[in-house]
Write a protein that binds this DNA or RNA. Structure first.
Lengths: 206, 206
DNA sequence: ACTGTTAAGTTATCACTGTTAAGATTAAGG
DNA sequence: CCTTAATCTTAACAGTGATAACTTAACAGT
């Protein structure tokens, strides 16, 4: 996700060729490298070999640009979750593995956490409407949980609450792992995955 | 916590009297009102009736200023938690009520969440050292949990994992509640407290 | 092949930000 | 009372997001 993008295209045209994508690549790269508050649109443009005002031909403003990165990151996260969903489909460990995938994603991309949840309205889709699927990451978790709920006779409200509790735990661990300093320290550990799994299953084991 | 601060002191002195505190008050006010990225040090200075460079006599830079706000907010949060701790001391619902206090704090002050956890190194105190008390909010929770752990024979590692799971759930719900749009919608509901309690206890009830 | 239209970039400029240096004003203490 | 240090001001710098006006290139239709 964080591969270093090329600075210039092959042709030295007045027109860039595919500036929006180049900007997004470079923007994501700088975001993951230096964090959100250090992300300068002008700097991104410069690294793409283009004038400071060029991005405004493709994005309404900086917020719009960040939102575009936001969407891309959310897509990547959702893809990883769906892959895990396929891998562990039907197995009992599915939900834990989904949570682990979620947490590991933000351990790999700590700077993406604030970007993803400080602007979009992902929370409303989670808290207020059980049927809403505006937050794709949450929807994958919901889908997995429902295959378990089938065997238990509980109310819709109770389902929603359990799902929210699960989400909160996973999301909270992701938030913790995204805090400064954690990634550098955890990525060295070889058994990080198991450590996180142990935390996510701590309630079950007691 | 968010009371509107006075713009000027009584005396029209060259020296302000207590500029650091005035700046912090105004800064916190603007933070909770407009969010972190809209927080301008110059604007804060102007509202305190002081030149743009005046804050630099008391704070090294903007980060240092934000860190000072950070500390103040963390203090307030800890105070609320300690009050809850006293109120429910010995009772079985203590931990849930602590979690509720934590979540409600960020429902009241949504913009404080990112400030509090995007810069400080609170996570290291949580994840890597069970004995560390650098994060006071976490320490209160830990203290409460230990009174429960006494009755169960479990390893230190297991204790740490359970505590991290609890922390993650509470912290994750706080993160969710801090997302844009949630506060306005939840504060209207009269039974918000019970709703959050139901989420935090969803695992126990099933 | 010419030409009008439009998309995509440039340059210049604006208001605003954090930050620093140098100087002015005041408070405090021997 | 005078020195010294703390506090605040003014002036300036570089960097930021953003907009307006202009230039270039691509492209369609006749």
């Amino acid at each position: 996700m964080t591969e270093k993008p090329e600075v210039k295209m092959a042709k030295e045209n007045y027109h860039h060729g595919n500036l929006p994508q180049a900007l997004l690549r470079q923007g994501l790269h700088m975001l993951t490298e230096y964090g959100e508050e250090k992300l300068s649109l002008r700097e991104v443009a410069k690294h793409c070999g283009v004038s400071p005002a060029a991005p405004y031909s493709h994005f309404k403003n900086k917020n719009d640009f960040i939102q575009a990165i936001n969407n891309y990151v959310m897509l990547k996260l959702t893809e990883e979750l769906q892959e895990t969903e396929k891998l562990y489909s039907g197995k009992k460990s599915l939900i834990i593995e989904l949570g682990l995938t979620y947490v590991l994603f933000f351990l790999k991309n700590p700077n993406c956490f604030s970007i993803l949840f400080s602007q979009s309205n992902h929370a409303e889709a989670i808290l207020f409407d059980y049927q809403d699927n505006a937050n794709p990451a949450f929807s994958v978790l919901k889908h997995a949980a429902e295959s378990i709920f089938e065997n238990f006779p509980i109310s819709e409200e109770q389902k929603h609450n359990i799902l929210l509790a699960m989400w909160s735990m996973v999301h909270g661990l992701a938030a913790t792992v995204s805090m400064p300093g954690v990634a550098e320290r955890m990525q060295q550990d070889l058994d990080t995955e198991q450590r996180l799994r142990d935390i996510l299953t701590a309630f079950q084991q007691s």
